[in-house]
Simulated scan of single mutants.
Amino acid sequence: MAVLPIRISGDPVLHTPAAPVQTIDDELRTLVADMFETMDAAPGVGLAGPQVGVPLRLFVYGYTDDDDVEYRGVAINPELFITPTSVEPADPDTESEGCLSFPGERFPLVRGESAILRATDLDGEPYEIQTSGWLARIFQHEFDHLDGLLYVDRIDRVYGKVAAKIERKKGWGVPGLAWVPGQDDVEP
């Protein structure tokens, strides 16, 4: 297993819809194992294929809820169904997100409270998870990556201006930038 470089905002793979996974084979299993290692090293709660430069529709997730229930898995060719989002502004204290492809920053974002994830696992078996709260948020965040969206593409205009300023200041927004968890001085 290996820790993979995580692409930073501006890399074309992050801003292009990913292609469906065609074959579940040993190469894909190795990629998924590397993605888990990368996510854990970052540390993060999710990581999508495009974030490691692989334009395929898959993501890994690892989250422990307040009751110490651990959710960890891979979603291959997922479908996601979400409840409508609130029209109220996001609460900066309870609805802020970060992203390993926009490292070190957090911004409030309204998401649907509940979600149903339908996907395939590494054995080619379909599964479904119905969830709410942070796990639903994680699924929505990672699913957006598969459609070529970063969470900063969805935040309110005021926060979007701040994110754009940060991106310019850090020299992001151009192809080819990445960081490696455990090697680079980046705080996610």
Results as ranks from 00 to 15, higher is better:
residue 111 R to H: 08
residue 111 R to F: 02
residue 113 E to W: 01
residue 114 S to Q: 13
residue 114 S to F: 04
residue 115 A to I: 01
residue 115 A to V: 01
residue 115 A to R: 01
residue 115 A to H: 01
residue 115 A to Y: 00
residue 115 A to L: 02
residue 115 A to C: 00
residue 115 A to F: 00
residue 116 I to A: 05
residue 116 I to E: 14
residue 117 L to T: 09
residue 118 R to H: 09
residue 118 R to N: 14
residue 119 A to C: 04
residue 119 A to G: 03
residue 120 T to L: 00
residue 120 T to A: 00
residue 120 T to V: 14
residue 121 D to N: 15
residue 121 D to I: 05
residue 121 D to F: 05
residue 122 L to W: 05
residue 122 L to G: 13
residue 123 D to I: 08
residue 123 D to L: 14
residue 124 G to Y: 11
residue 124 G to C: 14
residue 125 E to C: 00
residue 125 E to H: 05
residue 125 E to W: 00
residue 126 P to A: 13
residue 126 P to E: 15
residue 126 P to S: 14
residue 126 P to Q: 14
residue 126 P to I: 10
residue 127 Y to H: 09
residue 127 Y to C: 11
residue 127 Y to I: 10
residue 128 E to W: 13
residue 129 I to Y: 10
residue 129 I to E: 14
residue 129 I to F: 12
residue 130 Q to G: 12
residue 131 T to G: 08
residue 131 T to C: 15
residue 131 T to V: 15
residue 131 T to F: 07
residue 131 T to N: 09
residue 132 S to P: 04
residue 133 G to M: 10
residue 133 G to Q: 08
residue 133 G to K: 10
residue 133 G to P: 07
residue 134 W to L: 15
residue 134 W to K: 10
residue 134 W to Y: 14
residue 134 W to H: 12
residue 134 W to G: 02
residue 135 L to R: 12
residue 135 L to G: 07
residue 135 L to A: 09
residue 136 A to I: 02
residue 136 A to L: 02
residue 136 A to V: 02
residue 137 R to S: 04
residue 137 R to I: 00
residue 137 R to G: 02
residue 138 I to M: 02
residue 138 I to F: 01
residue 138 I to A: 02
residue 139 F to L: 08
residue 139 F to I: 07
residue 139 F to A: 09
residue 139 F to W: 07
residue 139 F to G: 04
residue 140 Q to G: 08
residue 140 Q to K: 03
residue 140 Q to Y: 00
residue 141 H to W: 06
residue 142 E to P: 03
residue 143 F to M: 11
residue 144 D to W: 04
residue 144 D to F: 07
residue 144 D to S: 12
residue 144 D to C: 03
